[in-house]
Amino acid sequence: MLWCAWSVAAAQPASVTLKNIRHDYQALNNCAPVTALTLLGYYGTQVTQAQAASAMKDYPGDPQVTSLELAAYLGRGGLQSVIRYAGDAELIRALVARGFPVVLQQRLQTGSNVAHFRTVYGYSAGQFLISDPLLGPSLRLSTAQLMTLWQYYNGEYLVAYPPAREAEVRQILGADFSAAANWQHLKLHGEQEVKARPKDPYAWWGLAKAHLRLGNVRAATESFDRAVSLGVPTMYYLYRQEAFEAWTQAGEHQKTLDVTQRALRVFPNSKELVGFEKLASAALRKAMSSLILLAGTRRASSGD
């Protein structure tokens, strides 16, 4: 299967810088609202950081806005979005060359556990031009730097576009425009990544997520368990909860409870963590009640 329509690559210019890229320096934990105003502004809709933050955050100071929440807010501004994985440098160039800024979710910097949205709006030989809500409107990363920071989130990218331009996005993404095909792509990518870096928990996480979305819960839980055993930092669970989904589907609720309770000591107001903690607690209470009832029934039948 051809994952992307790279026949367009030969016609790409050697360097591109998109115009009308609006930037604002973020307030604390506001990289998603700034990213929203950058994309909306590029396509002609003006919003402020405060307006975007008010609409996207669950409460003032909410440290986590997901890619799905960002896409939903952009939809209110008239843009469609696709969120995909296993992206690479050539794909970014192809999109930017056709006039589409690309949002990447990366780690903030090498060694940091903070997830961060960045918008790529230009490229030249061996480097990319990026609007970074924290580091400024003209951050330049080499291809190697960009790919290293991107591994943290398994090459996750978001492309937003006016509905009338969907055909262009479809052409550039090729098979990856289909979410189902992209999960297959991420699975193959993940298998290559864990082979190349078997001690990288984020590589195992990406493979696990692909298994989960493809419906292979057992393989997903095994890969998530490997990621956790290799040392996923507590902060990671604030941004990604797919392991809890897999453990819930597999009935392994104690794993979810243990991890969410640990993470909630650091991030007590995370609605995602609270939701999975409640779900696991309820499932474990139900299981315990069933065991007590079964034990009582057996005692009664034995005449004790």
Rank of each mutant, 00 (worst) to 15 (best):
M1V: 11
W3N: 11
A5N: 15
W6Q: 15
W6Y: 15
Q12F: 04
A14N: 03
V16W: 07
L18G: 03
K19S: 13
R22V: 08
H23Q: 01
H23F: 13
D24Y: 03
Q26F: 09
L28E: 07
L28V: 09
L37T: 13
G44D: 08
Q46L: 06
A50I: 09
S54T: 15
S54P: 02
M56K: 05
L68Q: 14
L68R: 08
E69G: 05
Y73L: 12
L79W: 11
V82N: 12
R84K: 15
Y85H: 15
Y85E: 15
A86P: 00
A86W: 06
G87Y: 10
D88E: 14
A89M: 09
L91A: 13
I92D: 15
A94W: 07
P101A: 11
V102Q: 07
T110N: 04
V114A: 01
R118G: 02
Y123N: 03
Y123K: 04
A125V: 12
Q127R: 13
F128L: 14
L129R: 13
I130E: 05
S131H: 08
L134P: 02
L134D: 08
L135Q: 11
S138A: 12
R140P: 01
L141P: 10
S142D: 15
T143G: 06
A144E: 03
W150Q: 06
Q151G: 06
Y152K: 11
Y152V: 07
Y152G: 07
V159R: 03
V159H: 03
P162E: 09
P162F: 02
P163S: 10
P163C: 08
E166H: 00
L173A: 05
D176W: 00
S178Q: 08
S178M: 02
A179C: 02
N182E: 05
W183P: 10
W183M: 13
L188C: 03
H189R: 05
G190L: 01
Q192M: 09
Q192V: 05
R197L: 02
P198G: 00
Y202M: 04
Y202P: 01
W205H: 02
W205T: 00
L207T: 07
L214N: 04
N216C: 00
V217D: 12
T221V: 13
E222S: 03
S223N: 06
S223G: 00
F224K: 06
A227T: 09
V228Q: 11
L230Q: 05
L230H: 01
P233I: 01
M235T: 08
Y236R: 10
Y236T: 14
Y236H: 14
Y237V: 05
L238G: 04
E245L: 12
E252W: 09
Q254W: 11
T256S: 15
L257R: 14
Q261E: 11
R262L: 14
R265I: 12
R265V: 13
N269K: 15
E272C: 03
F276G: 11
L279N: 13
L279Y: 07
S281K: 10
A283N: 14
A287H: 04
M288V: 02
S290C: 02
L291Y: 04
L294G: 12
A295R: 15
R299P: 06
S301W: 11
